[in-house]
Design a protein around this nucleic acid. Structure first.
Length: 260
DNA sequence: ATGCCGGGCGAAGCCCGA
């Protein structure tokens, strides 16, 4: 089973690229972020035509997350449990069931947090606290789950083209990394990093200043696996080639294949 | 370059992203 994540930066503009990638890779599940669409305007039909079920937690203009799945989508949760006052659509969780197996999947759009001296940064840190609490609760079930999405966190120097230039940014500073480490140390596994030791593999390149052409990227889109899911890892990768397509998102798909 | 692109909104120019 292939489970993927992709920040598409507007589903309206990116629907055809998503269809193209779905036909190419045929993932079982695709978590989408930054759809920038309300539920009613999400192009369900384009994905249903390819055999995907659709769950959407949308929002007008900003944010918005969705899950596409070839298998039934059950037990859908919109918003981070325990974070009921959050006005921003950044979390969608569901249970994916196959004939044999069950895997829980969350589509996550973690706040950017810049500028760090604004209220946006404490909002990011508090949002991470809620995510940590949710992961902790899910771990008690001792079942396979995948928390997939745009984390807006650069985990290490190996995940950024210019570490010293980025240090201090909301994506790459001590308080952010402390929270991220707390999440990981609950017992989660970074799917890409456990399969690839090579540094400087990225999932985002800015639209500006020729960042893609110069490979000035960062790795901020992650699939974090519970121990029961990590035991099933067959492979993982990042599909950078979509960044070279016409009308690309600034993010590219990342995926994990599980023996499910 | 604390916004050079790109998208939303809405019909010019501002807000937002990482």
């Amino acid at each position: 089973m292939i489970i993927a994540t992709w920040n598409v930066n507007s589903i309206k503009v990116r629907a055809d690229n998503v269809v193209r990638w779905l036909e190419e890779v045929k993932p079982d599940v695709l978590c989408l972020q930054e759809i920038k669409s309300i539920d009613e305007n999400f192009p369900n039909e384009k994905f249903e035509d390819l055999g995907y079920n659709v769950a959407v937690h949308g929002q007008k203009t900003y944010n918005g997350v969705a899950i596409l799945s070839k298998h039934p989508i059950e037990d859908v949760t919109k918003g981070l449990p325990g974070n009921n006052t959050d006005e921003q659509a950044r979390y969608l969780e569901a249970v994916i069931t196959t004939d044999q197996e069950v895997v829980r999947v969350a589509s996550i759009y973690l706040p950017n947090g810049n500028p760090v001296e604004s209220a946006k940064y404490p909002y990011k840190l508090e949002w991470m606290d809620h995510l940590i609490a949710r992961a902790n609760s899910l771990l008690e079930f001792e079942e396979p789950f995948v928390l997939a999405g745009d984390y807006n966190v650069i985990p290490t120097d190996d995940d950024v083209h210019n570490p010293s230039g980025w240090w201090g940014d909301a994506l790459y500073r001590q308080e952010t990394l402390d929270k991220y480490r707390t999440l990981i140390e609950l017992g989660l596994t970074d799917a890409f990093r456990t399969c690839h030791a090579q540094p400087h593999r990225y999932s985002f390149w800015d639209y500006q200043a020729g960042a893609w052409q110069k490979d000035h990227g960062i790795r901020i889109d992650h699939l974090l696996l519970s121990p029961q899911a990590a035991d099933l890892i067959k492979g993982a990768d990042i599909d950078a080639h979509t960044r070279g397509w016409e009308k690309p998102s600034d993010h590219v798909p990342a995926w994990v294949e599980l023996n499910l």
